[in-house]
Nucleic acid binder design. Structure first.
Length: 939
RNA sequence: CUUGCUAUAGCUCAGCCUGGUAGAGCAGUUGACUGAUAAUCAACCUGUCGCCGGUUCAACUCCGGCUAGCAAACCCA
């Protein structure tokens, strides 16, 4: 038997079947770095329209987890897809560097600032710690294949940035949004600091639950308001509270103006209670013998004077809508220094904001009865005093949800202290923010309602922290009036310039006299630091406005859905407060990662998937493909199985690319490219399909719907390419003359498709795409996919095509039905490969227009489409008994070919053996081996 | 507590806006090929569309309620 294998054009490529990504990616990364890919890209893209994705800075503490990876990969996909879309899309990663978590880490090592080390040394240690953390995180981020300005990221602790944060504060002050207040804030007595909302967590706590008498001072006044209230014994309004220690700060008792109250006569006294609650109150006080002697609405009692239960002062009855009948007595003990609502209603009535509690949680020395006692321990003493004075109606315990410090796990108190606030309402910040929200595109769209609700309802933004590692609130306040210095703007700029040179220490070192001269004696230098949310919130100014190549506003902010409360909001409020404009055009959110069951990951559950492990085992491209294939608008599930499926999909895509490359082995586009008009019908169809996929892919990139891309491309590889185009064109690729039109046409199609595909894949499978790119034949104008744009060499079928798209579709439809018949015959053992078979098709030829029947048009080439040795068309009238009706009026008969098998092309043909020189070959192979070569038109 | 989001095959996702016989790829099973070979091709199998109720001739789709998970609220994206 003669070996004709060497006369075939078999696929051949150096592109490995297995990616071996975990091992090879790091080397590729190094290559990108040595080549300065990012910097080159900036030069390359200079002058194009800008697309700015602004990075939300991760907090510089701890190793990165899968959520970080998701966030960075999504950003990278966007930046790269915009780059291929013809934009100049820089990516400057950042880190959030100040704040309590780092401070606490450093405290573990050095102790609190001021104990063993001074504040300056402490801050220095914080700075160093942050740098170390950044180094660790940066390494992991880069390993993901995320391209960006990693060697020059923005850090909120850069001196320049620190200075700009201070300047932003100045702009907000200048715009009238800043105010100093003594508001009650969540206060941790262990931190000795106010906490941000994000630093508060809720946990169950057992508290006292007491009912306390506030006795009416002047019964006559009461009787004027409620004549029926006459009776025996003292009259008391009963309040209920779970925080007895706040009673020293009591300034009023609040009733609901609309609510019905009753005066109850017991054996010894009269009690005023909400009608709806009087029974439950009396029941728990174990008073069964009572009668209701009078009723009134809450507003009838406004201004009535009550005796404070243990201090020599009178407090008024006030009215507030916040009083409800959910629990308690219908009368609310009001201590403006210890509660948000109390503060608000207290403002309305001009109540003093008494705060007898110090930062350590102990009553101040001048506090009558309780001086020096810790509020956490004072409750029994308060009860004791109340009992002594006969004011305690009932004492009990209650288990309920209560705010705790997220770090210390200790119960928080509300404490009014001097704090700096960004006011939401004093100069219309809230209204402006709500208006700006309308002009932003929120994806998914429910994000809009979410942030709207939050901005609508949020309290003023407390930006003060009593901490060391933070940007200082660089303000001077008049000692008497509490007013800001009249030259605040200029002073802030002067301070900012010092910070630019020396960092935040410049402020702490600064002597007031240096800037204020003789006036210094009248002013206090603020000692608070800024909430870190302010640092990251103002990066639209400190980064977007500041850095060359970036600009305000950003096109996109992209973070997890928790950031509607966090960064999206702090950025919005600060941008509105500084320049009256939203910092972003589009806000994209992604969900959190959860395990296969949809439950969140935690160390205790052992369901954590670490990005470092995935890249180390499967490679970054697998992780990236998982991110891309997952619908990130909801929770994103990861598990070993899911990653395994992802790796399967990857292999399919990789192998498809490999086969395309292998078939392009001897293809030089400059020399061998076939003009679109000369290409064979099937090849034109394949390019048309790719054009349609490209349309969908580009649209999906545009809409940030990457999971549709992953599906689409995989389907294309499997169905249109694997099952159809590549399978069918194998015959032409292998058996025709290397330089024949039929083969070059198939290669041209493969070339176009691969060129398009390598770009579709690049934003997701960056490593693999570059690898494909390196293996692509021909002279390349650029050495990275990154320097290209979406491929424009694809084309659609048109009216001039021999077969229309719908004709191809009907042919393939029939092909599938025939393939089922082939399978039956195969299962019956009559044939192995499809080429062992011939197919007879019986249908109504006469029903079609002459020349319009795609089967007839394909003629002898139909057998190549079906990958059988023969395909014969017959009239329906001649249908034999053993044919099967595969669709209405279409019968198919599959039979084993009677002819000999050509050893070269494996087709069974009648003319095998008819050529004396090549007894084992069919006619067309003889022609292809030593003749002019066969000619194909369609497939 | 509350508010928002989510729930379709073992996995990842379409379909729902605009009601009319549940789809794709992967995985699985079986087979073929040995010229994509740790690959490829083919056939087959796969579902209480989370649960309950309502509207309707008809509901995965529209409405109401519920359950579970996630977020807002440690870790933070």
């Amino acid at each position: 038997m003669t070996d004709y294998k060497h006369t075939l054009n078999l696929p051949n490529t150096q592109f490995p079947m297995r990616g071996d990504l975990a091992k090879r990616e790091p080397g590729m990364l190094e290559g990108w770095e040595t080549r300065q890919l990012y910097q080159k890209l900036r030069e390359h893209a200079a002058g194009r329209p800008k697309f700015i994705l602004h990075d939300g800075p991760p907090y510089a503490n701890g190793t990165i987890h899968i959520g970080h990876a998701v966030n960075k990969i999504l950003k990278d996909i966007i930046v790269k897809s915009k780059t291929l879309g013809g934009f100049d899309a820089p990516y400057v990663p950042g880190w959030d560097c100040h704040g309590l978590p780092i401070e606490l880490k450093v405290e573990e090592k050095l102790g609190k600032a001021g104990d063993k080390v001074d504040a300056f040394a402490f801050r220095k240690a914080c700075r160093e710690y942050a740098h170390e953390q950044i180094e660790l995180q940066r390494k992991d981020f880069k390993r993901l294949g995320v391209l960006g300005e990693w060697e020059n990221p923005y850090l909120t602790m850069d001196f320049q940035t620190e200075a700009d944060i201070v300047r932003a504060l100045g702009r907000i002050a200048a715009n009238g949004h800043l105010h100093k207040g003594a508001k009650p804030v969540h206060w941790c007595t262990d931190c000795g600091s106010a906490l941000a909302e994000a630093e508060v967590e809720y946990a169950d706590k057992t508290s006292f639950s007491i009912d306390v008498r506030f006795t009416v001072v002047d019964e006559g006044d009461l009787l004027k308001r409620v004549p029926d209230a006459a009776g025996d014994g003292e009259v008391s309004v009963v309040i209920w509270t779970t925080t007895p220690w706040t009673l020293p700060a009591n300034q009023a008792v609040a009733l609901n103006p609309e609510l019905e109250y009753v005066v109850v006569q017991t054996a010894t006294e009269r009690l005023v209670l909400a009608e709806a609650l009087h029974e439950s109150v009396l029941q728990r006080a174990e008073i069964s013998d009572f009668t209701i002697i009078a009723r009134c609405k809450g507003d009838a009692l406004e201004g009535l004077q009550l005796q404070h239960p243990f201090y020599a002062r009178h407090v008024p009855v006030i009215l507030g809508d916040h009083v409800t009948t959910d629990a308690g007595t219908g009368a609310v003990h009001t201590a403006p220094g210890h509660g948000q609502e109390d503060f608000v209603v207290g403002q309305k009535y001009g109540l003093p904001v008494d705060n007898p509690v110090g930062g350590d949680g102990c009553f101040l020395p001048n506090t009558e009865l309780f001086a020096g006692e810790s509020v956490h321990k004072a409750n029994p003493h308060v009860l004791e005093v109340l009992t002594e004075r006969g004011k305690l109606l009932k004492a009990d315990k209650l288990r309920h949800s209560y705010p705790h410090c997220w770090r210390h796990k200790t119960p928080l108190i509300f404490r009014a202290t001097p704090q700096w606030f960004i006011s939401l309402d004093q100069n219309g910040l809230r209204a402006k923010a709500l208006e700006a929200i309308q002009g932003v595109k929120w994806l998914p769209d429910w994000g809009k309602a979410r942030i709207e609700g939050m901005v609508q309802n949020r309290p003023d933004w407390c930006i003060s922290r009593q901490r060391n590692w933070g940007v200082p609130i660089t303000l001077f306040v008049h000692k008497e009036t509490g007013e800001l210095h009249p030259h605040t703007e200029a002073l802030i700029e002067a301070v900012a310039q010092r910070i630019e040179r020396e960092g935040i220490d410049a402020w702490f070192r600064l002597e007031t006299e240096e800037l204020l001269g003789k006036d210094a004696a009248n002013y206090d230098k603020a000692t608070d630091t800024l909430d870190v949310w302010f640092d990251s919130g103002v990066t639209h100014a400190s980064v977007l406005e500041r850095r060359a190549g970036l600009q305000f506003p950003a096109d996109v902010y992209l973070e997890g859905s928790d950031q509607h409360r966090g960064w999206f909001q702090s950025s919005l409020l600060s941008a509105i407060g500084t320049r009256g404009e939203a910092p972003y055009r589009t806000v994209l959110t992604h969900g959190f990662t959860v395990d296969a069951k949809g439950e969140k990951m935690s160390k205790s559950k052992g369901n954590i998937v670490a990005p470092q492990e995935v890249t180390g085992k499967l490679g970054a491209d697998i992780l990236r493909l998982w991110v891309a294939a997952t619908d990130y608008s909801r929770e994103m599930s990861v598990s070993d199985e899911i990653l395994k499926r992802t790796a399967d999909a990857y292999r399919r895509i990789r192998n498809t690319a490999r086969f395309l490359l292998a078939n392009l082995n001897d293809f030089d586009p400059a020399r061998d490219m076939v003009p679109a008009a000369d290409m064979l019908a099937l090849d034109r169809w394949a390019v048309d399909q790719a054009a349609q996929v490209q349309e969908k892919v580009l649209l999906a990139y545009d809409r940030f719907q990457f999971h549709l891309i992953a599906q689409e491309v995989l389907n294309f590889c499997t169905v249109e390419l694997g099952s159809l185009f590549l399978d069918i064109t194998k015959d032409r690729q292998y058996t025709m003359r290397a330089d024949s039109l039929g083969r070059r046409s198939a290669q041209t199609a493969a070339w176009h498709i691969l060129n398009a595909m390598v770009r579709w894949l690049y934003p997701v499978l960056s490593f693999t795409s570059e690898e494909i790119w390196q293996h692509m034949p021909g002279k390349k104008a650029v050495d990275s996919v990154l320097f290209t744009e979406w491929y424009d060499g694809l084309f659609r079928l048109d009216a001039g095509d021999k077969l229309s798209a719908s004709e191809w579709s009907s042919v393939f439809n029939l092909r599938e039905l025939i393939s089922k018949q082939l399978e039956e015959v195969r299962v019956a053992g009559k044939i192995g490969a499809g080429l062992d078979a011939e197919v007879d098709i019986y249908y109504r030829k006469d029903a079609r227009e002459p020349g319009a029947d795609p089967l007839v048009k394909l003629g002898d080439e139909l057998r190549f489409v079906l990958i059988t040795s023969g395909a014969h068309l017959h009239d329906l009238a001649d249908v034999p008994e053993d044919a099967v009706e595969v669709m209405e009026h279409v019968f198919v008969r599959v039979s084993r070919s009677r002819h000999g098998k050509c050893t070269r092309c494996w087709h069974h043909r009648e003319d095998v053996g008819s050529h004396a020189g090549h007894p084992e070959l069919c006619g067309r192979c003889v022609d292809n081996v030593e003749g002019a070569g066969e000619v194909r038109e369609y497939a």
